[in-house]
């Protein structure tokens, strides 16, 4: 589903964020991406979201080369992936429902379908009764769950998360992780960047380790055991 082939990313400042990174993530697989801050985790996710382009190497998503995707095709690509951001990226001038409905609205779903899907997604994260609230009035954990609902409402094949438990206590973090595992169980490919070592060690999933832009551990072996 996701395949990095000798990907390097060098920023104009000269910083080499990723050095010849290669790995492959199968469809329906769930993996964690760890490493100290500045190791290149965010850069790797940005490449997958097409917020950045690799300096060299090939990035294949479902067999398609992302390097060849023109700028005008980026929106339709982004509609096929779901992204959970560390800082939620929720809009404070609209309700929880409207925030979650945004990807469907942009993609042009009919209103009846939108309502059904949004409620299903909110129900999935246990926030159905908060749909008319403003995200600002919710707790950090609830906001993150709204962010997750928005990331999965259009049923993406790939779910990316950047430090989804960054600001949450262990109990809430465990809840969020349980949510991600549920999506994986229905076939979504999940890639989570985190430095919460304690949390991921308690879970039996593939763990990839980035150190100074180099993928020091592919994590594939542990998954195969």
């Amino acid at each position: 589903m996701i395949r990095f082939d000798n990907i390097s990313k060098r920023y104009p400042s000269g910083l080499e964020a990723l050095k010849r990174v290669s790995f492959e993530l199968e469809a329906g697989e769930m993996a964690f991406l760890t490493g100290p801050s500045g190791a290149g985790k965010s850069t790797l996710l940005k490449l997958l979201m097409l917020m950045e382009r690799p300096s060299s190497g090939t990035l294949l998503i479902n067999g398609k080369n992302l390097n060849r995707l023109s700028r005008s095709l980026i929106p339709s690509y982004r509609r096929q992936i779901g992204v959970v951001f560390q800082n939620h990226q929720l809009l404070s001038d609209r309700t929880v429902f409207e925030n979650v409905a945004l990807p469907l609205h942009i993609a042009g779903y009919p209103p009846s379908e939108t309502g059904r899907r949004v409620r299903a997604a909110l129900d999935g994260v246990g926030l159905l009764e908060k749909e008319t609230h403003n995200p600002v009035t919710l707790s950090g954990g609830e906001q993150q769950r709204v962010g997750i609902a928005r990331a999965v409402v259009h049923k993406p094949k790939i779910l990316l998360a950047d430090e989804p438990t960054g600001n949450l206590d262990p109990v809430l973090s465990a809840e969020i992780m349980a949510l991600f595992r549920r999506f994986q169980s229905v076939g979504v490919t999940v890639l989570i960047a985190t430095h919460d070592i304690n949390l991921i060690n308690s879970l039996d999933h593939r763990i990839m380790h980035l150190e100074d832009g180099i993928l020091t551990d592919d994590g594939g072996a542990s998954n195969g055991q």
Binding site: G28, G63, D218, G220
Partner: peptide, 20 residues
């Protein structure tokens, strides 16, 4: 690299059925 093959037999893999 672990036990995972890095081969490019992308198309032969059976995709997992999902609601996408």
């Amino acid at each position: 690299m672990g036990a995972r093959p890095m081969a490019s037999n992308q198309n032969t893999r059976e995709p997992v059925t999902r609601g996408a």
